[in-house]
């Protein structure tokens, strides 16, 4: 057992505690009633999705600066986890939107930029699978990640910059004191679980990438089979 498995276990225990408190001890929300309890799932998912995608950005900078495959594997591990979290985020959001706003989806700035975020990072993962040469893949993935990352601050600050249907940031000042603790515990739970998954995936991806990079190049094709520089 490695340390990340311990972190994962702590994360799940905290998740159970946080949601147990959120579901059974905290009061329902005054206006949204029971639906307001999605707070404890949705807000931590959003925070941690943005955290993992920010880690992806720093890993991409590290990969380009040092050329090390350790950073390269970290880009993929965090982008992958961030994609799952962002997909989860959009799903939870629409589950919440129906009873609160009245509709599952609306093209407001917050929702639109979040959907774009998912598409951009799915794009990063696609690009990564298209390029087969490990060295070229390191460069291309890192560049794509830095470009995709631009949307992260836009998602975060968008509710301050533009009018939207989505509410602005919540803080302990805007959240009833009885709801702050379960929210905080659920947030750490999501953070620990996601970081643990990032590390577990990082080890696997790094082993694969290093095996690919170490494998000898294929022998050159015989001249009669080569398509290059053949006169037509």
């Amino acid at each position: 057992m490695r340390w990340e498995h311990g972190l994962l276990a702590i994360g799940f225990v905290l998740l159970a505690i946080g949601h147990g408190m959120g579901l059974f001890m905290a009061p329902e929300e005054a206006m949204m009633r029971e639906a307001g309890r999605i707070l404890y799932a949705h807000v931590p998912t959003a925070w941690v999705a943005l955290v993992t995608l920010t880690l992806s950005f720093f890993a991409a900078v590290g990969a380009l600066w040092t050329g090390r495959y350790g950073w390269d594997a970290a880009v993929e591990a965090t982008a992958e986890t961030g994609v799952v979290l962002t997909a989860l985020l959009l799903f939870q959001g629409s589950m919440w939107a129906k009873p609160t706003w009245g509709y599952y989806w609306d093209w407001d700035p917050r929702l639109t930029t979040s959907a774009i975020l998912l598409v951009l990072f799915v794009g990063v993962l696609v690009v990564r699978r298209v390029v087969s040469d490990p060295e070229r893949r390191l460069t291309v993935t890192a560049i794509a990640t830095i470009v995709a990352f631009v949307d992260v601050p836009v998602v975060y600050f968008g509710v301050k910059w533009w009018r939207s249907l989505h509410q602005e940031w919540s803080s302990p000042q805007t959240v009833d004191s009885t709801m702050v603790m379960p929210l905080r515990i659920a947030a750490f739970a999501m953070l620990f679980i996601s970081l643990a998954i990032c590390v577990i995936r990082w080890r696997t991806i790094l082993a694969t990438v290093q095996a690919e990079a170490t494998a000898p190049d294929l022998p050159a094709l015989p001249a009669e089979l080569s398509l290059a520089e053949k006169e037509v």
């Binding site: 009061p27 706003w101 009245g102 509709y103 805007t174 709801m179």
Partner: peptide
């Protein structure tokens, strides 16, 4: 299409009725 805009405030019910 009528959409309700909820604020970022989460309050406990005040009308004395427990959950």
């Amino acid at each position: 299409r009528l959409m309700v805009k909820h604020s970022n405030e989460y309050k406990a019910p005040e009308d004395g009725m427990s959950a």
